[in-house]
Amino acid sequence: MFAYIVRRLLYAIPILIGVNLLTFTLFFVVNTPDDMAVSQLGEKYVTPEAIENWKKKNGYDKPLFVNADASGTSQLTDTIFFNKSVRLFAFDFGRSESGRDITTDVSTRMWPSLAVALPTFIVGIGVNITIALMVVMFHATRLDRGAVFLFVALMSISYLFYIIGGQYLVAKSWRLVPVSGFVPEGQVWRFLVLPVMVGVIAGIGAGARWYRTLFLEEANQDYVRTARAKGCSELTILFKHILPNAMIPILTGVVVLIPTLFMGSLLIESFFGIPGLGSYMLDAINSQDFAIVRSMVFIGSILYILGLILTDISYTLADPRVRLS
């Protein structure tokens, strides 16, 4: 297993290089370092000298991929791409184009993201499983069909409406919680109630429907019928038989998501003014801050790969028949 993990981690390296190359190409096909300088320098009195100065200061005064002026390996190493990428692999994200230290920013902004994403994730799973179990009890009745229809209807509402509606009703009309914001010291929960609630409710449709399917799959297995024939009560069947067995697909399904929780939710964070990584990304896109975008893509990829590895491991833990090779 250890060997397996090491191999997977090594396999991640070419993927990360590919990711980096792609981001780089995408960004610089349309943006020249001059463009970046102009957008960072503002709109008044932007002289060519100032642009050159900015490029030099931020390390964009070199060729992008191939340095024809240099000799030997430095043809490839004395370039923007090499200089900016190599440091990423050492987890040195450098400074954003506006001059802030990205590592510091990421490590401080990670926590608000988690503070929203983790409760949403856990409460969401709890609520969805509870609802799904209730619905499963009424399988093949009108109630079940009605519930499934409701799930689909909930799924069909744009996420934006949940946020806008939630904010409008709970925060603005009923004044139960702050409209937005995040104060780490003191009563953080007041700021988290609404985003978490919105996140959970928005996820009910898809989530509960998925769990329902999983449970039904289990409910149709032979062992459940046997249990029922033996005269086990419905509750016993549900909690002793169906739930534990359905845990395997549930577990493997959600484990892949855990690392990405760090990245936060773009929409929730920007609507609720939570200074997490999601809004960090959005700001970076809007201000075309390449250093941040590059770093976030890198972190996102690592977390994704981590999620895949974790999933594989959780398979072996949940189901001893699976062996990693």
């Binding site: 070419p14 590919g18 792609l22 981001t23 995408l26 349309v30 773009l266 975008v293 994704y304």
Partner: peptide, 25 residues
């Protein structure tokens, strides 16, 4: 390799970057 690389990039970033690319183009 191709699809793992593509899907490991946070979707929204990839979309945003590409859309900006096309728009500028």
């Amino acid at each position: 390799y191709l699809y793992i690389t593509l899907s490991s990039i946070p979707g929204i970033l990839l979309i945003a970057a590409s859309v900006l690319l096309f728009q500028v183009y």
